[in-house]
């Protein structure tokens, strides 16, 4: 959903694993839908880790643990690997997450998050390990994500880190603009490019 992004301060939901692939974020059977209704995908976020086959919640999974709340998902390394399905980003947004913190992201998924106004925040392994420890010890641990300042702070320890975002996407997020607005405003350049090409 298009929404302006500024500073977010929230508790965190930890899903502590490396290489979480998009098949885990949203299994392929949910790709049959033609809707973009984020709530539908959000209800099925991490479906096979979150629910038993009969639809009952698995008590051990963090999304089912009432101790954890907030709009920040904290994961591990290489988050969102595998399939390009944007349904994964829709599910994350639809659940209510606005920020995903990881040690690294898969390229396609990272861009899918940005295109859905979910902010991927890459932090160092150390920062992430400390954050997971803090959340484990105290689920009320809050994180402050400052997009204008490109800075993330663990409010439990006061530790801060710069995170890379890129000027263009930062501008889009802060102003709730999407890429199509930009591209369509640039149609003359596209036509000029086409007429100037030699090969095809």
């Amino acid at each position: 959903m298009k929404q302006k992004f500024d500073v977010i301060q929230s508790r965190c939901v930890p899903v502590k694993a490396d290489n979480i692939d998009t098949d885990q974020i949203i299994p392929a059977r949910f790709l049959k839908e033609t809707t973009r209704d984020e709530c539908f995908y959000g209800d099925n976020l991490f479906c096979d880790w979150r629910y038993n086959a009969d639809g009952s919640p698995k008590p051990g999974f963090p999304l089912n643990n009432p101790a954890y709340s907030g709009c920040i998902l904290v994961t591990g390394r290489n988050f969102g690997s595998g399939s390009s399905r944007e349904h994964a980003a829709w599910a994350i947004a639809g659940y209510g997450f606005r920020v995903v913190v990881a040690a690294s992201f898969a390229d396609i998924h990272r861009l899918n998050e940005l295109n859905n106004f979910v902010l991927p925040v890459s932090v160092s392994e150390d920062f992430l390990a400390e954050l997971h420890s803090c959340i484990e010890a105290d689920p009320a641990t809050e994180l402050r994500v400052d997009l204008p300042g490109e800075c993330v702070t663990n409010l439990k320890t006061g530790r801060s880190e710069h995170f890379p975002i890129g000027e263009y996407k930062k501008y889009c997020l802060m102003n709730a603009l999407d890429d199509i607005d930009f591209l369509l405003s640039n149609k003359n350049a596209i036509e000029q490019f086409e007429s100037g090409r030699k090969q095809d």
Partner: peptide, 10 residues
């Protein structure tokens, strides 16, 4: 085709 700034290309 063009640059969108910040290292992003169209």
């Amino acid at each position: 085709v063009a640059s969108a700034g910040g290292g992003v290309s169209q």
